[in-house]
C-alpha cells in the first residue's frame, strides 16, 4: 500500500470501518512511513479530542426533570389507551359518546355521558398530578438510596403543622408501611391544593387537601358514599388510577394511587382534633 492509498482510507481506518485486509495493510504502512503516521496521529487525536469535549457536555437542565416530564407524557399515552374503549383517544370517544347521547337521553339515563365528562374534567387532572408527583418521588427515593443520605424530608413537617393550624386536621406522618415524604401546593382544577406524597418501598399515594367550599364531590360518586364516624368517603375506581374523596370537617381530602393492590378506602391520612 502506498501513501495515497493509505491516506484515502485514513478516516475509515480511524473509525474502525476498514476491512481486515485493509486494516493490516494500513498498519504496516504506518509503521514504515513517518509522514503518514504523523497524519494519522493528528487525525485520530483530533477525533478523540472532539469526542471527549462533547461527551463531557452535561446539559444544564436536570435529567431528572426531563425524566419526570417524559414519564408524565407516557402516562398520558397510557390513559388514552385505557380510556373509554370505543376508540383510543378521548376525542374519538367523545364523538362516539356524543353520537349516542340522544339515544341514551331518550331511554332516560344520561349516566354514561356524565361519567365520561366527569372523568376528563375532574378525575384526569387529579390523576395526572398524582402520577407526575409519583415519578418525581420515585426518582428522589432512588437518589436518596444511592447517596445513602437521610434527606427524605422536604416540607412534610411544615405541612403537618399547617393542616393542624388551618383545619384542625392532624396528618399521620406514618401510615402502615407508608411514610409522608413531601408536601407542596399546586393548582389543580383551578383551586390551590395541598399535595402530599406518602411513599412505601414500592408504591406512592398522593393526598390532596382542599377547602370543602372550593370543591364539591362529583355527582356520579354520590352513590358510593360510605360513612365512618365523622368521615364521609366517596370512591372512584378506574383502571388508570384510584381516587377516594374524604369529606371531613371543612376540608376535602383526596387520596390517589395507581397501585391497585392498595385498599385506598383504608388509607386514612389524618383525623380531626378538637
Amino acid at each position: 500500500m502506498n501513501c495515497q492509498e493509505a491516506l484515502d482510507l485514513l478516516y475509515e481506518f480511524i473509525d474502525k470501518e476498514t476491512s481486515d485486509i485493509d486494516t493490516q495493510q494500513i498498519q504496516a504502512h504506518l509503521k514504515k512511513c513517518g509522514d503518514c503516521f504523523q497524519k494519522y496521529r493528528l487525525e485520530s487525536s483530533i477525533q478523540e479530542f472532539i469526542h471527549a469535549k462533547l461527551a463531557d457536555d452535561k446539559p444544564a437542565a436536570s435529567l431528572e426533570r426531563l425524566k419526570s416530564k417524559v414519564s408524565a407524557r407516557l402516562d398520558q399515552v397510557d390513559r388514552e389507551e385505557c380510556g373509554p374503549k370505543s376508540g383510543s383517544p378521548y376525542r374519538l370517544a367523545f364523538i362516539t359518546v356524543a353520537a349516542a347521547a340522544l339515544l341514551v337521553l331518550m331511554i332516560g339515563g344520561a349516566g354514561i355521558i356524565t361519567d365520561f365528562i366527569t372523568h376528563t374534567s375532574t378525575y384526569a387532572p387529579l390523576e395526572q398530578a398524582h402520577l407526575a408527583q409519583a415519578h418525581l418521588a420515585q426518582a428522589h427515593l432512588a437518589q436518596v438510596e444511592n447517596s445513602s443520605g437521610t434527606e427524605t424530608e422536604f416540607a412534610a413537617e411544615s405541612v403537618i403543622s399547617l393542616m393542624l393550624e388551618q383545619n384542625s386536621y392532624e396528618l399521620r406522618p406514618n401510615l402502615g408501611e407508608f411514610v409522608l415524604i413531601s408536601g407542596k401546593t399546586e393548582e389543580i382544577l383551578g383551586v390551590e391544593m395541598n399535595h402530599l406524597t406518602y411513599s412505601s418501598s414500592n408504591a406512592i399515594v398522593s393526598v390532596f387537601i382542599v377547602p370543602a367550599d372550593k370543591f364539591s364531590i362529583p355527582d356520579d360518586l354520590l352513590d358510593t358514599k360510605i360513612v365512618r364516624g365523622d368521615l364521609e368517603l366517596f370512591d372512584h375506581n378506574c383502571p388508570a388510577c384510584r381516587l377516594v374523596f374524604h369529606v371531613i370537617g371543612s376540608i376535602v381530602v383526596i387520596t390517589a394511587t395507581s397501585d391497585q393492590s392498595i385498599e385506598l378506602l383504608d388509607f386514612i391520612p389524618g383525623k380531626l382534633v378538637a
Binding site: 462533547l54 457536555d57 452535561k58 446539559p59 444544564a60 437542565a61 435529567l63 417524559v70
Partner: peptide, 18 residues
C-alpha cells in the same frame, strides 16, 4: 429510558439549544 442521557446530549448538538 437508560438512553436518555445520550439522546439529550445529541439532541442539544442537533437542535443547538436545550
Amino acid at each position: 429510558l437508560p438512553h436518555m442521557d445520550a439522546l439529550m446530549r445529541t439532541a442539544v448538538r442537533m437542535a443547538k439549544n436545550e
